[in-house]
Each structure stands twice: as structure tokens, then as C-alpha cells.
């Protein structure tokens, strides 16, 4: 069982927004949905390795800031051109106002 990594405070992310989280040489994107749930995916777009945290969250979609590729950040599913490879997702939990990731 891999450890939970403390990533940020729950209030560090606005609702319907995303931030970047770097850990052990890897980069992740952590999302807070309009319904106030938290999610995490790989930080880089599967298309051109752009940091998704610079992109816009709209409902359950993250849009890449450069090429407008879209993913469902809850499932990682790619939503059409130019992205065709899904994003990897990671378990997230919120405890004591802090967001934890299981990045194993």
C-alpha cells in the first residue's frame, strides 16, 4: 500500500479550479470540482506535455491551456482531438483541511 502524500490545503484551490503539485520528480494536477470534491491526475497533457494546471476547469472538464485538448479530470478520459490518450488519475482524500494524494 502506498502512502498518502500531503499536497496542499483544501482552501488553496478555488472551487472549479486546479493547481499544480510537484512531488519526487513528478508533476500532478489537483482539482476542486464545482461540487466541492477533489481529484488528481498526471500534471502534463498527454498530447504535448503542457502543464494542465495552467488550463481552465469547466464542470468536470480540464482544458489544456495550449491546444485546448480536454479531459474529464474525474476519470482521466480524453474528450477528443487533439488528445487521444487518457490521463492517469490518482486517489485523493481531504482530512483536517488538507488534501492528500496517493501517487504510487
Amino acid at each position: 500500500m502506498t502512502d498518502w502524500i500531503e499536497a496542499c490545503g483544501a482552501e488553496d484551490i478555488d472551487e472549479e479550479d486546479v493547481i499544480r503539485f510537484d512531488h519526487a520528480g513528478r508533476t500532478f494536477a489537483i482539482y476542486r470540482s464545482p461540487g466541492n470534491e477533489y481529484f488528481a491526475t498526471d500534471g502534463l497533457c498527454t498530447h504535448e506535455k503542457v502543464h494542465l494546471a495552467g488550463g481552465l476547469v469547466m464542470d468536470d472538464i480540464i482544458e489544456c491551456p495550449k491546444h485546448n485538448g480536454r479531459f474529464n479530470y474525474k476519470t482521466g478520459a480524453a474528450r477528443g482531438a487533439p488528445v487521444c490518450v487518457d490521463l492517469r488519475t490518482y486517489p485523493v482524500k481531504v482530512e483536517d483541511g488538507k488534501v492528500f494524494l496517493q501517487v504510487g
Partner: peptide
């Protein structure tokens, strides 16, 4: 720097 302004320009 980087994509700092990307989101606001998209909005």
C-alpha cells in the same frame, strides 16, 4: 511566465 495568463485569456 509560462501559462500564467492562459486561464484568464480563455475566460
Amino acid at each position: 511566465q509560462g501559462d500564467t495568463v492562459a486561464r484568464d485569456i480563455r475566460l
